[in-house]
Amino acid sequence: MNSSSTKKGRGPKARPLSENINPGMAYTRPGEIEAKNLEALSQDFQTLCERATVKEPSDPAYLPSETLVFLIRGARRRNDGDMMSALLPHLLKRCECILNSKIQEWCVPNPEEFREEILAQFAMLFAEDSTSKDKHKLDFYETRFNLAFRAFRIDNLRKELKRAKHTDQLVEENELDEEDEKSQQEIPLTQATQIIDLLQEEIKKAIQLLSPMERRVLIFRFHFGYQLESTNSDKLTVSKLCNISGRTAQNHILRAVKKLSRFKGV
């Protein structure tokens, strides 16, 4: 047994998380996570290594990702290289699974490279944790890991798409002018709303067939429920959020609905 095998997963027990910027919400770990953290603190290195390999969330030995973050951060603060090297790969493996299912060919030009870069960038957060460069970013991950990782992933995706200079939007704007009249005659907007309601599940599958702007307009109109446009300039509308005219927004919806209708065979 080497010296590290007797180590405990100890970290500062009452290490508080940073202040929340959401009004009325503290960045506190959920009760069940606190309980898992406390349990992990009393266990030795070997036990924690074994528990980190458990993949099934329903297994009582399963360590939630929030707890893995908690333990790795504790190890980082103590400069406990053995603990970091033992636990971080398991957390990265979980992240890799999420990335594999979420970042697909149609999302970015080089999905494989992009997934790898995100994974490495995420690992770097632990190297920078507790330094003058960053003291609290990982607090989010100790609270709600999957939602925090989603933010990280989407923020990086957004930056990547900007870098890749996706020009779908501009191309589409030009194409729309030619088809405006025809589209409007084929499906009235009220009917489009009814079709959207009928196709909730199919939308999820078909959403990837839509262009970025069609998706954007559709989501703001039908998920968030914003009006296409308004005479009240203070009001948030699809037109305002997408930086296009109400008429263009409507045309995007009609085109999207046409695609979705074909998908369903309506």
Partner: peptide, 26 residues
Amino acid sequence: PDAEQARKFQFSPSVTRAMSRFQNAL
């Protein structure tokens, strides 16, 4: 994360490379 998918492989080259970059940054 998909537990089934996680079970299928050990640490992938991506995870290994991410760990390597982590160690360098650390």
